[in-house]
Simulated assay, not measured.
Amino acid sequence: MAENSLHAVIDLGTNTFHLLIAEVRAEEQFAEIYRERIFVKLASDGIETIGPEPFARGIATLKHFARVIREHGVTSVTAIGTAALRTATNGEAFVRTASLECGIEIGLISGDTEAELITRGVLAALPPLEDRVLIMDIGGGSTEYIIASSEGVHWRQSFPIGVAVLQRSFHHTDPISADEVSRLENFLEVQLQPLREALGAYPAHHLVGAAGTFDVMAEVLRDGAALRARNSHVLTMDGLEHLHLTIVGSTVAERLAIPGVPPERVDLIVVAMLLIRFTIGLAGIRKLTVSDYAMKEGILLNASDQNLGSPAASG
């Protein structure tokens, strides 16, 4: 990739489609030009198959992104599909439609590759590491965990426990019932056994959250922000327990009234908070940092040394 060229990254998540356009200036440096997210919710009719309405929402969003990309004169585009498109029976049909109707070529990546890209993005947002960290990126179809330190990455794994999956399986009452919470926690205990074993080998008491629910937590708890760095901020743990109890014990209407909680997330934030709470207990977390960077930025930082992109659509 030529220096000072515009590169677009499209992250097709299970819940949200993201577009990031930036000028790549040098390795590990870029200037953001444009950023947008649209809640598509590909799994609103189920994770196994993308329903007709979410399928149409997704393609309409990509047509919009293609227009924005052309308007900015972008030279190359990287579009990445994650859990929903990996697992849906009509995921390949969605990829073909995006190519034919939007001129956007989507690459499907594995959960391990997703975790690798998240790692690069998050670590670029943090100050130099002084302790071992547990990075957590909650998606709709999967959740990625990475254990890292100044010595490098010690362990990483993608788990099929995204919030869309958890919500459809365990959250059917309003507010969520004690029995549903118990069944969810028992499920996580089994699913996250590899994480428990990894933490036994590489203890990490500093949780770094990327995107999604962590952004919401940062917004809701903004008055408790203890330390702000350029692309990340540390939250005090004091308000986290109160926020957890408030959200988990609330109805949809009550969550809609909480300042900082987007309407598009009120249905999924309960299981997300329970997943975070479970992780905090499992790892014995004592410090929480929210990263402004995640997979999109990791892809962008790879753009100067890897051939991840394709030419921008002209049609």
Rank of each mutant, 00 (worst) to 15 (best):
A22E: 09
A22D: 01
E23D: 02
E23A: 09
V24R: 11
R25E: 10
R25P: 01
A26P: 04
E27L: 13
E27Q: 10
Q29F: 08
Q29R: 15
F30S: 14
F30T: 05
A31H: 10
I33C: 01
Y34N: 04
Y34P: 09
Y34M: 13
R35Y: 09
R35E: 14
E36A: 07
R37K: 15
R37V: 04
R37D: 08
I38C: 14
F39G: 03
K41P: 03
A43F: 05
A43S: 13
A43Q: 03
A43I: 08
D45T: 07
D45E: 08
D45H: 04
G46A: 09
E48T: 03
E48V: 07
T49V: 08
T49F: 06
I50F: 12
G51M: 02
P52Y: 09
P52R: 03
P52L: 07
A56H: 11
R57N: 11
G58C: 10
G58S: 13
I59S: 04
I59F: 07
A60Q: 11
L62G: 07
L62A: 14
L62W: 04
F65N: 04
R67V: 01
V68N: 02
R70E: 00
R70L: 00
E71A: 15
V74G: 00
V74F: 00
T75N: 12
V77T: 13
T78M: 11
A79W: 13
G81C: 12
G81E: 11
G81M: 13
A84N: 04
A84H: 13
